[in-house]
Design a protein around this nucleic acid. Structure first.
Lengths: 224, 224
DNA sequence: ATCGATAACATTGTATACAAACATTACAAA
DNA sequence: TTTGTAATGTTTGTATACAATGTTATCGAT
């Protein structure tokens, strides 16, 4: 694994685990210092993250952790509905016993993280569950695209997290239901469960309320 | 528009118009010479194209125009079915009269290019038609993803073009039928027409026949 | 005190230099 | 003729230097 990939992985994980939060400035010098490399390789990583839309590069201004707008958030969730419905149809066809056991194991991990109240771990594990389904579906293009959408969803969660935490517990049950549908090879049910799961995620967010700061920031989009 | 973007556009166009063909070596020095810039900016462009999977970067070996495998080709076409079905559902909902007129104009251009026998122009225009639909659908994420898939489809066309050219003429009619369905706001028909259109494209390719060279090359995948 | 202009500073954009990896060629041995 | 090895040359990977741009601070005018 090359130098770039290692740094990329570390930054990507930090993003998924919500240790890097939207709006954070990603200075080339500072990152180079931290990882012990020159700006050249940092830039390469930042450009990759920018292409995946989890980082935003403003010309001559620098790189920042992306701050998805409500519109982008809706786009991402809708794209996920489209893509993951397609994925589910393939999963039901291709899923082996081994795959199902793996999914069940992942579900257990999720439950454990919720028990312990480790929210950011759960967001990360929840993403892994969806990515596992994509891997089972066997379409590399859709899998890669979903990776982008899932990581962006993680940022969206940070920005538009609903105050009421109670609603999140269901997500785990929803994953369990999806596994059941797959086990029964019930394509229609699997797809519709996935769709309502994604709907539920979107409803958890408060996308139209309460701009986080004063109107001017929301309108002209300065980075915090 | 920055320097990178200009060079990117030129290379991307060359790719879509099939002037850059799969397997072509993209030397940093040569490209830098051609565009009058240093390797730094060339590398940036190559990395972007690599992320869009139309260019393949082999570590310490350099960049090449991607040579999609039959498996990748099938993945891309399947991903397109999933994504463009979703897009069509939105298009039927959002499409304005102006949009339809624009689609009709594009269709006329396509017909003209087929008349003149300008095959590569038609491939490019055909891609534009699909991208126009994506734009109308109003989902930026799906639109960006489809751009990737369409450009990869262009490379796939080059590599797996069927010998019989006769079958290609229908594509234009298929686009016409799709416009009709949109005009009638017939969601079901629009979606199924798009799906069979993409099936038809896939059937045009010969994905399982005739390895281009002897077995050793096919098995170990040297670039020509 | 606020606003505007200017200067000092910091950060990114690009080019280039050097190091490392790879490919090719030439040549010797089997 | 083919295979293995060494030397050469080419290409990419990384660091760094300089230029261009953006940001911030200072200072004077209103």
């Amino acid at each position: 694994m090359s130098q770039d990939d290692q740094i990329y992985s570390q930054m990507f994980s930090a993003l998924l685990e919500q240790r890097l939060t939207p709006g954070t400035k990603l200075s080339e010098d500072v990152l180079g210092e931290i990882f012990g490399v020159s700006r050249t390789v940092v830039r390469k990583v930042l450009q990759r993250l920018a292409h995946e839309k989890v980082v935003c590069i403003l010309p001559n201004r620098g790189a920042f952790v992306a701050e998805p707008t409500p519109e982008e958030a809706r786009d991402v969730l809708e794209a996920r509905r489209v893509v993951e419905a397609g994925i589910m149809r393939n999963v039901v066809k291709h899923c082996s016993q081994t795959d199902i056991r793996r999914l069940e194991a992942m579900l257990k991990e999720e439950e454990a993280s919720i028990e312990k109240g480790e929210h950011s771990t759960w967001v990360s594990l929840s993403g892994d569950f969806h990515m596992a389904l994509a891997a089972i579906s066997g379409n590399k293009s859709l899998e890669d695209f979903l990776r982008e959408l899932v990581s962006r969803t993680s940022l969206i969660h940070v920005q538009y997290q609903s105050k009421k935490i109670g609603t999140q517990n269901c997500s785990c049950e929803e994953h369990a239901d999806i596994i059941d549908a797959i086990r029964d090879a019930d394509e229609g049910r699997a797809v519709s469960l996935m769709l309502s799961h994604l709907d539920a995620i979107e409803e958890t967010l408060n996308l139209d309320g309460d701009k986080p700061e004063s109107d001017l920031y929301a309108i002209f989009g300065g980075s915090k």
